[in-house]
Design a protein around this nucleic acid. Structure first.
Lengths: 196, 196
DNA sequence: TGCGACCCATACGGTCCGTTTCGTTTCAGC
DNA sequence: GCTGAAACGAAACGGACCGTATGGGTCGCA
């Protein structure tokens, strides 16, 4: 990935060097993939990026901040809109699991959750991020509500919470290879429970 | 908690000293409560327990193993049996959240999950433990199925998974103070979805 | 032209890791 | 009894990493 990154990159003057920032973020992702969360240290990232530790600390106050930015650089997942809630949610989960499995996103997000258990900044960032995602998933439910597929008094946030929780737990317990049928079944149980 | 624990505890001969084992486990719990997961180190536990590090490493191969034993020493939670599935599950979650909040169990379990993200032994132990809990929660659903409250073709394991996932996510995102009404609503959505 | 912000490299004191060594204590087998 | 084995706490080890400080070089901007 980011190897051979200009051995001995120099300053470009009195402003932030985007090459350094890129090299650091790419190195962070690479280290996380190759060595896992336990091998993810600022020193390792600095070595990999041929950057100085102070340069990293200048721009990212903590390991958590670095993780967050690495995660946010990842491609976003587009959510399907099939006109059927069960399809939308099951498709969303299947896509999400595949994305987490096949890219580094899963490892990055796992690490971020783990880091949030001992770092307040990570916890805050994660809560903030989750809020955004919850409202995003909530829109899928709101759409279904508008179609009359879901009862009007359903709290979309709670439903989104259930779906996200299911995804998180699979990520955290190494079950991203779950059968599509099982995922669909889980979704069906919830969808039937909120039907109009 | 475990202070005044025989300063300078000595060997009791060519067999394991249960006082040392107890002191170490109590110290581990105390350190976790007082300093949190980030402050939880073998060194800190050894200091607190007035034990030597080799004594800890002799009996627990890793931080994860120590965490697991601390967690398993905790009191188990009994699950209600009200004759109504929604009551049973909501009561279970409310009790669980309160237990996690009011004792050290929540912190211990959080730490265990975090540790499992970088330690294979912890991941395996957690998977094993979860399997047991899943079948346990599954029994609540099976009971409801036997009463005819739940459709016969429902997969109790998947339902248990949904419930446990909801609990985990609240634990991991510091939302153990969730409204009881919100919890009940989430449970109701699922229960309605699997009704006979 | 020179200040200030950026870059990298190096080094520091500190903490924790997991292990080894040491002297001591007591059990278990002879 | 005597002796070997095993457990104990204490101390120290080399190594990794933390977060910070310092210094020398490079450049943008006033």
């Amino acid at each position: 990935m980011g190897e051979l990154a200009a051995p001995g990159r120099k300053s470009i003057g009195a402003k932030r060097n985007p090459e350094s920032a890129d090299a650091i973020l790419e190195a962070a992702e690479a280290v996380l993939v190759e060595a896992g969360y336990s091998g993810f240290s600022i020193e390792a990232v600095a070595r990999r990026a041929r950057a100085g530790k102070p340069t990293i600390y200048r721009w990212w106050p903590s390991k958590a901040a670095l993780l967050i930015e690495v995660y946010q650089r990842q491609k976003r997942l587009e959510t399907p809109d099939t006109g059927k809630l069960e399809e939308d949610l099951a498709g969303f989960l299947v896509n999400l699991f595949a994305h987490w499995r096949d890219t580094s996103s899963g490892n990055v997000f796992r690490s971020l959750i783990a880091e949030a258990q001992s770092d307040k900044a990570a916890a805050a960032a994660l809560a903030d991020y989750s809020k955004g995602r919850r409202s995003h998933t909530g829109q899928i439910i709101e759409r279904a509500k508008a179609r009359g597929e879901v009862a009007a008094d359903i709290d979309a946030g709670i439903v989104a919470d259930l779906i996200a929780s299911y995804a998180w737990r699979h990520l955290l317990t190494n079950r991203l290879d779950e059968d599509e049928a099982t995922i669909r079944t889980a979704v069906r149980y919830v969808v039937r429970g909120i039907a109009a």
